[in-house]
Design a binder for these strands. Structure first.
Lengths: 243, 243
DNA sequence: GGGGAGAGATGCCGC
DNA sequence: GCGGCATTTCTCCCC
């Protein structure tokens, strides 16, 4: 066991990614407080000094510490502890390691960044470039604007030269989306001294409550799908068969 | 390399948690589309069939597949692939494994659940049980109510028997918090036919913009901290010095 | 560094 | 299953 401690200690000094499979108990104190009784988990410490703990179930880590945390591994009363402290964030974690199932320390080389298509920005681009998706004679002026009126997805004029604000959502629009749109419309009305500003939610779907609130406020809903670049799932299936 | 494939294949049939350190290329197609060029990552597949991929930097996984995904490992043109498919979600991922740095397969035993203190619910409980934190003679009626008016944190009457709605936030209250409160207040005013309903944000802090909007709408802000159970960070520091 | 908003958000709970 | 909402959200981008 002392050998394990030495390996982790050495790895913590370098740029290794450390992966530990261990039976452990975890205590956290910081933004909240948590306690996790004894059980088997996977612990990862990365070279940027963040730490994540995964139980054998679930997508999200059960415990974690942010980038820039200090880590220390030591024995006390013949028990092995990993103590992690993030001074700036006033957070800390103590993992008591009852038993180590496996340990890997390895310098991982990866300078690549993920490319992602189909985000809300792509959706507003699509609408900007195809204004007829909203309605005929819609003239978009800008997109993804950090104006003093707020962060507006698409912004333009309709055929009557009435200002139109469009809030895009990739999924079913919720009450939040409507209140967000409402905030923008009100702000721009006030700042520009306009009586009439149209607000449109563009999304593949909208919840019943959101639709009701939308109508109560005189806003509109326009069905619109986020763009797909390589075709749908079934097509992809076929294509992937080539591999 | 074929031995690695066999080990993963066997592990996928059982209840093992699989941890792979590998140089790989990742393609994802589903709710969005993504591509990640060659680099070293840690891949975890859990017994509930979810998969997460971690680069050697950052807290969040760079790619993932949800619980219930089917995984297949196979060779094609002498190249090793891990293909993951979630039929119901219409999502899939293909990981090309160029080189395996390490591989661990282990059945992890963990039936424990994390206990967390200091959540927003704990905060509304605290206010419910200590109404003076809001003001003298505040009479709370309920908390965490899933009423037809919405999900209201705390709900009660002030000394003038005016209805009071309190929205709690663990951190700095933002514009969202104010619009949320506004939604509740308006809805309850309308449904109960009341002219005056007070709205209060209880949070440790509030952003300047949120405060302005709050005041514009005649709502109030009351500084309140989420409950701490084991004392603050500095005290904890001292206590932890015992280790 | 704080504020504002998206995310392939995830997870929880209630209907 | 959907809906509404918190999250130790995380991450990005802009001021």
């Amino acid at each position: 066991m002392h050998e394990t401690q030495e390996r982790i200690k050495r790895a913590l000094k370098g740029q290794s990614t450390i992966v530990i499979g261990a039976n452990c108990t975890i205590e956290y104190n910081g933004r909240a407080e948590s306690y996790l009784p004894e059980g088997d988990r996977v612990i990862i410490i990365k070279p940027d000094r963040n730490l994540i703990v995964h139980q054998p179930i679930g997508t999200a880590p059960v415990n974690y510490m942010k980038t820039g945390t200090e880590h220390n591994i030591y024995y006390e009363d013949k028990k092995l502890y990993l103590k992690s402290k993030h001074v700036a964030q006033k957070e800390e974690m103590i993992i008591r390691l009852h038993n180590i199932h496996f340990l890997q320390t390895k310098i991982l080389q990866d300078g690549e960044k993920i490319t992602l298509k189909g985000s809300e920005k792509d959706m507003s681009d699509k609408i900007y470039n195809n204004p007829k998706l909203i309605e005929d004679d819609f003239k978009p002026l800008s997109r993804e604007e950090h104006t003093k009126y707020g962060f507006i997805d698409v912004f333009g004029y309709d055929k009557n030269n009435t200002l139109v604000i469009i809030e895009c959502k990739r999924y079913t629009a919720t009450l939040d989306a409507v209140t967000q749109l409402r905030r923008y419309v009100e702000k721009i009305k006030k700042n520009k001294g306009l009586e009439k500003v149209r607000g449109i939610i563009a999304a593949p779907d909208i919840s019943a409550n959101a639709r009701k609130m939308l109508e109560d406020w005189g806003f509109e809903y326009k069905k619109a799908d986020p763009p797909k670049y390589h075709g749908n799932f079934n097509k992809k299936q076929k294509k992937l068969g080539e591999f």
